[in-house]
Design a protein around this nucleic acid. Structure first.
Lengths: 292, 292
DNA sequence: CTATATCCATCTAATAATGTGATGGATTGC
DNA sequence: GCAATCCATCACATTATTAGATGGATATAG
């Protein structure tokens, strides 16, 4: 590069303080150093930046445009300096978390917003997966932590249990299953709805369906709720998402001899060997604090 | 600024060429200079940019983020270098042209687009004025050139005449004026429409109205055409803008003993003492070439 | 009009920043 | 185990930047 950021800083200071001499003072330099810097910059750019014909030097039109571009350059350069500081004081450059799409997003989003409000230097990536897919993604991407329902314990993992969530087996009130009592086998004759398991198809099927023969996977619980209300099939839904539908009678809780309620336990899992940075710590704590 | 663009360039070269040594070669420097630059940069930023534990140094996550920010910085810095070159080779930093809003915009816009396509460094400002306002603005802003209908010659101005445009006196076909023959005096009893003269109100009235007592000024010819078609009044319109209306009979040419046609002569006016830069020259030529 | 202050360019010398070339320990590939 | 390559480090050379002094030009106050 033919010029330096210091030269641009000098240019900026001259414009800010009105004269070479005043700029020199503000930069704690001699006036000759400022003259030198300007001359140097004019030399490499091949353009006169100041008009010295009058008593005090004034910016040429070209000088003004270059100053404006230069000021932008300086703000970006200062950002790099700040990044350095922040990385040095414990902010990690990147943070990846994997979250089960089954879980409510509000606490997570709120915690993320808190982080964003503080202008963290950390580049955050949140990945949504479902069920078995969460841990697989966590391991494959070596993410920083995951928020999942089921995970396979390992010596390098450390889990923090969050309050339970209850699932309930429901169907539309006009669905064929709504009337009678069932067992796991009798359910199998009907279409079961479930959220999409992002596991590879070759791997073990997920454990949150009843193991029915015909399972229809949907992308999220919102879609699944629509499908349930349309009478497409039956399935397990988180209680908070359908209390309204149960109250209005649009959906009904099925009567099953194995019980129509299940409890899932969300866990925050992090690596023991790789401690979280400041952003990770704050996000982790933020999610935990908001988890009712 | 605590670091230099050269340091960022070195960082970039290392990533690009894969090793300190290769980067040094690409920069035509000794390898020790690269080591020095990296160490220096790490020092001022307070962050390790490379992990030297292995055989070859690899970027740390922080290093990667800083490299990405740095690359952006470099592209902006190169832009400044290019600006310098371009200003030095005749491109002016700024160009202001003043154009009479009466004139067709297509040739002007096309010529501007041509300039923009070539990524000129020049910041272009096009100001629209009307009639007497054009020259006033040209002088007040010391614009580079103007495209006007009427101008007061002066020793420091140089004009290039463009092909004529024809104006015609029209009104709606159901307007009271449409039937009979008129003279200038008889017109005065009706409302005259005209495009807005941006002259100060205290100055001489413009010469492109018939001098009627009641003149209604509109912002542009498009609006004026609407008003004419609605039968609001009569006025002078450029022929190309209303050929359609004349053909359909929506508007009719008035019969006036002084003649219902006028010719206006657009002129491109520049300053003799202040020659146009490359952008101005090209815009000037571009408009002239497209002026049918 | 003159005295005075301020502006900026320029010179020389000092200082700091950056670069070279040589050396050496560590790692990789064969 | 040998050769090649990596990068850090050292002593030293070269540039780049800075300070300090000087002088001509312009503005400002009286």
């Amino acid at each position: 590069m033919k010029f330096s950021l210091d030269a641009i800083e000098t240019l900026d200071a001259i414009d800010q303080h009105g004269s070479f001499a005043a700029a020199a003072a503000s930069l704690h330099k001699a006036q000759s150093a400022v003259s030198y810097a300007v001359k140097q910059l004019e030399g490499v750019l091949g353009v006169a930046l100041f008009d010295r014909s009058g008593h005090r030097a004034t910016l040429t039109p070209a000088g003004l445009v270059i100053l404006e571009e230069g000021r932008y350059l300086l703000t970006r350069a200062r950002r790099i300096e700040r990044l350095g500081e922040q990385f040095a004081t414990g902010w990690e450059p990147r943070l990846q978390v994997v979250i089960d799409g089954v879980l409510p997003v509000r606490p997570i989003m709120e915690a993320l917003k808190d982080l964003a409000d503080d202008e963290t230097p950390t580049r955050i990536r949140v990945t949504m997966e479902f069920l078995g897919g969460v841990q697989r993604r966590f391991e494959r991407d070596t993410a920083d932590f995951m928020l999942t329902l089921s995970y396979t314990p390992a010596p390098h993992l450390q889990a923090h249990v969050l309050p339970d969530r209850e699932l309930v087996l429901v169907a539309a009130s006009d669905h064929a299953l709504a009337e009678t009592t069932h067992n796991a086998a009798s359910l199998q004759r009907h279409l079961e709805l479930s959220v999409h398991d992002s596991s590879d198809l070759t791997e073990a099927r997920d454990t949150h369906t009843t193991g029915g023969a015909r399972v229809f996977y949907l992308s999220d619980f919102h879609t699944m709720r629509q499908a349930l209300r349309m009478g497409l099939g039956f399935g397990w839904m988180p209680v908070p998402l359908i209390t309204e539908d149960l109250a209005s009678g649009a959906l009904v809780e099925l009567v099953m001899d194995g019980g129509s309620r299940r409890t899932i336990t969300p866990v925050l899992v992090q690596r023991i060997d790789q401690p979280l940075g400041l952003a990770g710590q704050r996000l982790f704590d933020g999610i935990r604090a908001r988890w009712h």
